[in-house]
Design a binder for these strands. Structure first.
Lengths: 328, 328
DNA sequence: GAACGTGCTGGAATCGTTTCCAGCGTGTGT
DNA sequence: ACACACGCTGGAAACGATTCCAGCACGTTC
């Protein structure tokens, strides 16, 4: 039913080896052979069976892309860029979603590892040791995470947070709340750490409202807690949580930014659509996806390279959810 | 390096065939053999190589999922459901994005077809003939599209549109604009057709504002045209376009729903977050993804089945973007 | 003109798994 | 006790592509 290399060989009147060579290294066969083979390939619409190739070369031509939650609008931009770049380089992408569960993540990686040449793990939730252990077996690039000895694409959170804290300080805010994301999120810990540094440096008090799910509902759930802290501004782990806050604030009749300023993180497409449009720290998501794939494929072709690092810029995007601090 | 069936066989002191049988049909081996094999499998962490298996069984264990645009928030919910259900049934999913390009779609399908057992095509943009031709080679299920002889999961657009048109008519609207989506979209044509039927049935005039990209910017671009029609309400091909309209209306100082009511389509997660929250026709997206996979795998296991059909319910979700018609 | 080197080619082995088939041993029925 | 049947097992072939190796037919050089 499917056309194999033998069909091509028969039609071209050559051996399978010659067909293979024509496709892999056209300059290693005589021009007339090459032409006959190419004609036969075109006529039959031959396309090599990747499973068979993979069996002998040990390469599948597939990459695994693992994200915590496809439905979180932070990820589709990255997924899209990854998919596009991988396809350009003739790799196919297996997508998987861990539902924010570190155990599911590890299980998924193990299950998929035989079918892929490497992994791109975006916002991986599992432990450093688990990541390193995966990396021992297979090329891995993490995005939005840093782990010793593992190649990584990260965002310059420090710069973005510095801009945001500076922005709030300039507007007169002296007491800022931070709504933390998942405990298992490396970038949450990182942002929290950077926030502590930068706020204390400019004399802003940072109050912590504890962890919440990185979703709309997570944000909505902590809104009352945020108000209770008396903070005049609130920063969130991600935009979804910020939007959840806005929703609850509106229901309570709390004015944004009149009563409280809100700063998100990620600049998801929705951020500019809500009312008020959200001030947020924008990340170069498409670039991250592309850079991640380039790094991963670089590693595939050059396994001995030391774990590379790429840091992508962040940019505070000021919209209407931030304004001058309410008078204490 | 990787552990193969032979390693297991050696450790268990049996042949490869017995290992294979133990895994595929445990009741066909003697209990003591089974136990020894299972112990060896567990000890070595053996996991069969799918490429090798695929070579002989002709099945890859992979499914292809093709969508026009991952970044369109309509799709992630479906993708997530597809991915989850496929994994439950031990299939892996290749995701691809066609950038709304019918030619790219066909090319992608051809390129992927050797690596998958079947396709789930969501909102396919290519022609009926092309779809049927793909279906001749490989099991295919289309979601949000109907093509003769091809298995399909669709939404009951007629019911949703009927509800929406009734809702608008009740509010006194007599002139409703429709902002069409891509020409290549089957569901756009379908919705347009149903709209013509239902509006004329209740004595509402339908004005057409031509096609636009199914994106925020597409909606924004036609906003002025919509206003120029003098319609008191506007329905759009999808929610993104409706949100684009809202954005432009706000910029122009046009009140929603005071000056014009807006009804979207799809009920993407953003719909309830914007201001005003969007009245829209909700689709059972997760169900569609799950049903699509179930149908596809049913087809895989039972190739001779006649092309099945599933129709999922739609539901008008009334929010704040619709209100009484402005007096002519 | 003979010896050698070069450039292509086809055959064979290989990857890891499944599946078919033959054979072996055990148990049952007469 | 013998024949038969049945259950289970191991060996071998197969899937489709790649790669190594040997060999063949040139062309070149002495």
């Amino acid at each position: 039913m499917a056309v194999t290399i033998k069909d091509v060989a028969r039609l071209a009147g050559v051996s399978a080896s010659s067909v293979c060579r024509t496709l892999a290294a056209p300059d290693k066969v005589r021009p007339d052979t090459r032409e006959r083979v190419q004609r036969a390939v075109a006529e039959l619409g031959y396309y090599p069976n990747r499973a068979a190739r993979g069996l002998i070369t040990g390469r599948t031509g597939n990459l695994g892309l693992i994200v915590p939650d496809i439905a979180n609008p932070f990820f589709p931009d990255i997924i899209k860029a990854v998919e596009a770049r991988a396809r350009e380089l003739d790799y196919a992408v297996f997508l998987a979603d861990t539902d924010e569960d570190p155990a599911a993540e590890v299980a998924l990686i193990r299950a998929m590892s035989k079918q892929v040449d490497g992994f791109l793990l975006v916002s991986a939730r599992c432990s450093d040791d688990e990541l390193r252990s995966v990396y021992r077996d297979l090329p891995v690039v993490v995005v939005q995470r840093r782990v010793r000895h593992v190649p990584a694409v990260t965002f310059d959170d420090h710069d973005g947070i510095l801009q945001a804290v500076g922005h709030l300080a300039t507007l007169g805010h002296r007491r800022v709340a931070y709504v933390a994301g998942p405990r298992t999120s490396w970038s949450n810990k990182e942002r929290q750490r950077i926030l502590r540094l930068t706020t204390s440096a400019v004399g802003v008090e940072l109050v912590d409202t504890g962890h919440a799910a990185p979703t709309l509902d997570g944000g909505t759930a902590v809104a009352d807690l945020v108000l209770a802290t008396g903070a005049t501004a609130v920063m969130t782990f991600n935009d979804l949580m910020a939007l959840g806050l806005l929703r609850r604030f509106r229901a309570l009749g709390v004015e944004v930014p009149g009563d409280i300023s809100v700063v998100g993180f990620d600049d998801i497409p929705l951020a500019e659509l809500v009312d008020p449009p959200l001030t947020t720290i924008a990340l170069a998501k498409q670039k991250a996806g592309r850079a991640g794939i380039d790094m991963l494929i670089g590693l595939l072709n050059n396994p001995e390279t030391a774990a590379p690092r790429t840091v992508l810029p962040t940019q505070l995007t000021v919209r209407a959810s931030t304004g001058p601090a309410r008078r204490g």
